[in-house]
Every structure is written in structure tokens, then in C-alpha cells.
Amino acid sequence: MTTAPDPAPTEPKATPTRPGRRRRRTRVPTAALLVAPSVLFLAALFLWPIVVGVGQAVTGTDGPTLAHLRRMLDDPYFWQATRNTALLIVVLIPLQFAFALTMALLLRERPRLSSFYFYVWCVPLAISDLAAGLVWLSIFADRGYLNSVLAHLGLGDGYAWLSYDNDATMFLAVLLAELWRATSLVLVIVVAGLQNIPRDYDEAAAVFGATYWQRLRHVILPQLRPSLQVALILRTILGLQTFAVAQALTGRSFPLLVGETYQWYVTLQNERVSAAIALVILLMSLGTAVVYLRVLRDPAATGSGR
């Protein structure tokens, strides 16, 4: 450019001296005010008991002690409970996910009466594990409905499904009751996840010639990943908390970890061992959540902001 003509007159240019930077009206105070009560409340009911619980577990009448932890570890019930809890989770969760996925895919086909089905399948959502145990007790009790049916059919008159002699059937009863009660939660999460998958994807895959199973494997399941992940973490941690089902069905014949906290606290009146077991469960839950989040991290989701 050899010459510098004036630019066309636009708005009057900003004067270099700006009015002093105004105090920015931020919304932080309002938001903090709204959030603070819940934070304080949760901290009080969460962090405080943890501190107290650790104190309970590692101190005795005269200073710090490992006696309670030792007593916990020396108790055969503790190891049995740990084994049962682990076994229940390992066997139950794959079954539950397969079952819930099947149910969700059935509903996706929109059969007639599907809203009725959905209602019935969701009822256990609001049923506690104690109630579920009692419901299945009516079936598995020695003089319960299962044996009655068998008797009606002339297939023997009574098998002690829940007796401590019959480890396998006892486990089976607890497993069935839990499958019945807790699959609804997975179902609801999966159904919600399926609803968020646009049907276009599925239809596009169908147009390009994918069979149902190919679509399921390559289109639907990958899209469901976040939902399944959430359900998995939630179910595992809730699985760790199961106890009243077993209590209702078998008493202490099939001990579970949380049941042991209850036993030590209520029946054996030893809050220190009870607190120790509670902390073990807490640590296990935390560990599970961390492991899941690491292992299941979606490679496509990392690095994307919010």
C-alpha cells in the first residue's frame, strides 16, 4: 500500500480510556448459598462417621489397639461372609446383566402389552432386600410353595432347600431372590440408555445389511457402554450391601459381610468389631469403584471436555 486512505466511518472508535473495570457481578455467591447446606449435611453424615468409625475400630479402652481387627479376622464367620459376598457378586452380576439386557431388548421390540410388562418388571425396584427375602421364603421354606408344587406333582414331599447342610441350594435361593429383586435396577438403566440411542443408527446398520446380532454387537452395545458401566458400578456396590435377603432366607447360615456388621452390633453387642467390618466394606466399595472406572474408561470419551 502506497497510500493510507481513511477507513469508512463506522461507529466512533473506543476511547483508549475505559471506564474503570466494573465489579463483576458473579453468580458464585448465590450458587454457593444454594449448594452449601447439602455439602455440609453430607459431609457431617459421611466424613464424621468415617472418622469415628476408624477410631472405634482401632482404639480400645486403653489406647490404640489392633485387637478388634484381629478378632474380626479370627472369626470364621468373617471369612465365610467375605467368600459368600464375593461369590454372590461374581455369579449374580453377569446373570443379572444378561437378564436385564434380554428384557430391555424384548421391550425394544415393542410387543403388545409392553407397558404392562414394564410395570411388572419394575415392581421389585421398590422392594427392599428384606421383603424380597421374605417373598422367596414363602417359596423355598420347607413347607413352602416350591415343595408344595413338587408334592402336588408327586415329586417327593419336601426338600430342605434352605438348610445349612445344603450349601448349594441355599446359595441358589439367595441368588434367585437377588436376581428377582435387583435386576429391575439394571433394566431401568439399560432401557433409559437404549432410549438415548437414536433409532437411525440401528436402522442405518440394518440398511447396510447387518443382521440383528451384528447390530446388537456393533451398534447397540457400544452405545450402551456408559449406561452399562454405571449400572455395573452401582450394582456391584449395592451387591456388597446385600444382607437382609440372606438373613430372611437362611438366618446366619449364609452369612454376608453387612450381615456380620449387624450380627456383631445387634446380637453380639460389639460395636468395635462391627465398625471394623463396616470399614472393610467401605474400602471394598471404594476399591471396586476405582477399579471399574479405570478398567472401563471409554477410550472415546477421554480427553473430551464436559
Binding site: 475505559r18 471506564p19 474503570g20 473495570r21 466494573r22 463483576r24 457481578r25
Partner: peptide
């Protein structure tokens, strides 16, 4: 929306805040 700086006047009245 609150401006970081500058002012808004309506009918001769500063309404920025």
C-alpha cells in the same frame, strides 16, 4: 447479562446495575 465493563442507559437513566 452483566457487562464486564461499560454502561447501559435507558431514557437517560444508568441501568447497568
Amino acid at each position: 447479562e452483566a457487562p464486564d465493563s461499560g454502561s447501559v442507559q435507558i431514557g437517560g437513566r444508568d441501568v447497568t446495575d
